[in-house]
Design a protein around this nucleic acid. Structure first.
Length: 559
RNA sequence: UGGGGUGUGGUGCAACGGCAGCACAUCAGCCUUUGGAGCUGAGUAUCUAGGUUCGAGUCCUGGCGCCCCAGCCA
C-alpha cells in the first residue's frame, strides 16, 4: 500500500479474508474485477473495484480484470478500452486481463460433465412456459416435461444446440436442481441459451449458445483460481447456486462475499437510464460533466485522489444506504483547496472606474498563488484605472449584513488597493452600467498602514488586460434526491443545471492555461479548462462552488 | 403471505459483553487580504417488547420497518 494514503478502516470483508488466510482456507489471495463491457464506468463501479483492488494488494495478492462478455446482444469492444482507461485513471492496476469468452470451450466441457452426472438437461419449453412453470415466490414451480430425458439424449441435443441446429429461444440447457426450492434461483436455472445474432465481439460466429451469468461467473472464478469473489448484495441469493455448480463439478471453490452497492443522492447509477439520458439528449454524451460517470467526473474537474478519498470514507457494509452527495463535494473541495492555483475571474462583469487613478497607468500587483502551499509562490497581476468586478459585489442599496461595495463604503480590492464607491452610472432602463470609485494610494497591496479595516475583500480583473472566456456553470442534473426511483427520471432533469456565461473576464495569466488545468477562482469556486477550450478564448467548467456564507445569509433573508 | 439480507444522531461508517465514537451536514463563536481555508464549541442516535447478565448497541425469544429475488440480463 502506498505510504501516503490514510489507513483504511477494516470491514467485514477484510476480516473474512484475513480469517481465511489464518485458518488456511486459502494460502494466497486473488480477486477479480468483473465489468460487463456494455457501458462506461461510474462512481458505483469505483467502490466495487476498489474493494477488489485493495483486498488484493493489502494481502500481497493479485487482481485480475475479467470482462464478463457472455451476452453478444449487449456487449461491444469499444467499451473494453474505455473501461480500462477509466480504471487506470482512478489508479487501479491488475496483473492479468481476461474475458469470460476465453473460457467458452472449457465451460462447455464442464457443462457436458454436468449432463453426464444427470445434473443438467435440455429443456424444449418455450420461454413463456419456462417462466410460467417457475412458480411464484410462494408457490413451487412445475417440473418440465423434458426434465427426465436420458443422458444420451441430453448430450445429443446439447451438441446440436451448439452446432446451431435450433433457432433462438427454442431450447435451453438447465441445471437439474429443485423446482420447489424456496429460493427461486435454484429452480432449475438456465445455463445456456441460443443466440445466433449478433456476432460476439471476440469469438465472432464460433458460438451460437452463450452461458448465463450464473453458469459462467463462478466457473470462471474457479478456473482462474480466484479466492474471493466480491460482489453486491443482489447476488447473495445466487451464492447457493454458485456453490452448487462447483460442488457438483468437484472444482476449486472460491468464496463469494457480498456488500451493498453505492447509492449516491442526485446521481444516476443505472446503466440503462444513463444510456437513455445520453440518447434523448438530456445530457451531452457519457462524459457530460453532470454525470457521475468517471468520464463525466474527470471532465468536470474531479481529481482521482478526491474520488479515492470519497470511497475510502463511505465504508463497506451490507445494509442499503444513501450517501449524501455533499460528502463527495466535500472530498473534491478539500483536495482542490490544497492543490489548485488561485486566480481572479469575473463571471458577471460590472465596470468600475477609479476616478483618481492616473489614466494609462499600469501596476503589477503581487498575488499569492496558493495560500495552502507556500511553495506555489507569487504571480504578477496588472492593475489599472478601469476594472471589472462581480455584479454581486456591488449593491446600490445594501441589504443587512452586506459588507461589499455600495455607495460610501470602502472595500479592499484583493492584492491591490482600498477603494470607496462615489457614484453610480445607469442606463435609460435604470440598469447599473458603471460604478465610480476613488482609491487610497497608501493602501497599495491591500494593507492600510494606518491600521484601518474594511469588512470585505473583493476580486477584480483589469479591463484592458482582461481575457474574455466562456464559463460553463454546472449544477446537479436532477431536482430529486433519488432520480433512480421509478421510471420518471427524465422529468427530474433540471434544465437549469447548465448555465453558459459569455463573455466572462479572467486574469491575463489564464490565457496560457492548458486543457485539464484546475484553478480556484477566488471567492467563486473551482474551475478547470475544458477539452474543447481554444487558446485564444479559453473555456472553463465549474467543478464546484466555494462554500458561500453570504449566499446562506441571503437565503435566510428570504431573497 | 416463500426465501435471503438488514435496522446506531439528518446522512454514512465504527464500537467484536465494559465511558456510544468518527466523518459529512447543521448551528454558534474565533480568526481571516477569499463571507474560502483553518480553529473552538454545540445539538441530535442504538426499531420495538420481553429475557439472560454485576453490566446489552452487542447474546436469546417474539414483533415491526426497509431492501433483494418469479430474465433465455448481469
Amino acid at each position: 500500500m502506498d505510504s501516503n494514503e490514510a489507513p483504511r478502516p477494516s470491514d467485514f470483508i477484510r476480516e473474512a479474508v484475513a480469517e481465511d488466510l489464518k485458518n488456511e482456507r486459502f494460502t494466497y489471495i486473488r480477486t477479480r474485477l468483473p465489468p460487463e463491457p456494455n457501458g462506461f464506468l461510474h462512481i458505483g463501479h469505483v467502490k466495487a473495484f476498489l474493494i477488489d483492488y485493495n483486498v488484493a494488494r493489502e494481502n500481497d495478492g493479485e487482481l485480475y480484470l475479467r470482462f464478463d462478455d457472455t451476452n453478444p446482444a449487449k456487449e461491444e469492444s469499444e467499451y473494453v478500452e474505455a473501461i480500462k482507461e477509466d480504471a487506470h485513471w482512478i489508479g487501479i492496476h491488475w496483473v492479468k486481463e481476461t474475458f469470460a469468452s476465453d473460457y467458452f470451450d472449457r465451460l462447455y466441457s464442464w457443462a457436458i460433465r454436468l449432463v453426464m452426472l444427470g445434473k443438467a438437461y435440455v429443456d424444449d419449453q418455450s420461454p413463456e412456459e419456462v417462466s410460467k412453470n417457475r412458480g411464484t415466490l410462494t408457490e413451487p414451480g412445475i417440473e418440465s416435461p423434458f426434465r427426465n430425458r436420458s443422458v444420451e439424449e441430453n448430450l445429443d441435443l446439447l451438441e446440436r444446440m451448439k452446432n446451431g441446429e435450433f433457432p433462438d429461444g427454442s431450447r435451453i440447457l438447465r441445471a437439474r436442481i429443485d423446482m420447489a426450492h424456496p429460493n427461486m434461483v435454484m429452480r432449475d436455472p438456465a445455463m445456456y441459451r441460443i443466440i445466433h445474432e449478433p456476432a460476439h465481439h471476440r469469438t465472432g460466429q464460433k458460438w451460437c449458445i452463450y452461458p448465463m451469468y450464473d453458469w459462467s461467473h463462478g466457473q470462471n472464478d474457479s478456473m482462474e483460481g480466484v479466492t474471493h469473489s466480491l460482489c453486491s448484495m443482489e447476488y447473495e441469493i445466487h451464492r447457493p447456486l454458485y456453490e452448487w455448480f462447483l460442488e457438483q463439478l468437484g472444482e476449486f471453490k472460491p468464496r463469494q462475499i457480498e456488500f451493498s452497492r453505492l447509492n449516491l443522492t442526485y446521481a444516476m447509477m443505472s446503466k440503462r437510464k444513463l444510456r437513455k439520458l445520453v440518447e434523448v439528449g438530456a445530457v451531452n454524451g457519457w462524459d457530460d460533466p453532470r454525470l457521475t460517470t468517471l468520464r463525466g467526473m474527470r471532465r468536470r474537474g474531479y481529481t482521482s485522489a478526491a474520488i479515492l478519498d470519497f470511497i475510502n470514507r463511505i465504508g463497506v457494509a451490507k445494509n442499503t444506504s444513501w450517501i449524501d452527495f455533499a460528502l463527495l463535494e466535500s472530498c473534491v473541495r478539500e483536495n482542490l483547496n490544497k492543490t489548485s492555483m488561485r486566480k481572479m475571474a469575473v463571471l458577471h462583469p460590472l465596470k468600475v472606474i477609479i476616478d483618481n487613478y492616473p489614466e494609462g497607468q499600469v501596476e503589477e500587483m503581487d498575488a499569492v498563488n496558493n495560500p495552502e502551499d507556500a511553495s506555489a509562490g507569487f504571480r504578477k497581476v496588472p492593475f489599472s484605472r478601469e476594472l471589472y468586478i462581480e455584479q454581486d459585489d456591488f449593491r446600490e442599496v445594501p441589504p443587512p449584513k452586506y459588507y461589499r461595495l455600495y455607495p460610501g463604503n470602502e472595500v479592499r480590492l484583493r492584492y491591490a488597493y482600498f477603494i470607496k464607491c462615489s457614484s453610480v452610472i445607469k442606463d435609460n432602463q435604470g440598469n447599473i452600467i458603471e460604478v465610480h470609485c476613488t482609491y487610497d494610494p497608501a493602501t497599495k497591496g491591500g494593507d492600510a498602514r494606518d491600521g484601518r479595516k474594511v469588512k470585505s475583500t473583493i476580486h477584480w480583473v483589469s479591463a484592458p488586460h482582461a481575457v474574455p472566456a466562456e464559463i460553463r456553470l454546472y449544477d446537479k442534473l436532477f431536482t430529486k434526491e433519488n432520480p433512480d426511483e421509478g421510471d420518471d427520471f427524465l422529468s427530474y432533469v433540471d434544465s437549469a443545471s447548465l448555465e453558459v456565461l459569455n463573455p466572462c473576464f479572467v486574469e491575463k495569466s489564464l490565457s496560457e492555461s492548458q486543457v485539464g488545468d484546475k484553478f480556484q477562482f477566488e471567492r467563486i469556486g473551482y474551475f478547470c479548462v475544458d477539452p474543447e477550450s481554444q487558446p485564444v478564448k479559453p473555456f472553463f467548467i465549474r467543478t464546484f462552488t466555494l462554500k458561500d456564507a453570504w449566499a446562506m445569509i441571503e437565503q435566510k433573508q428570504g431573497k
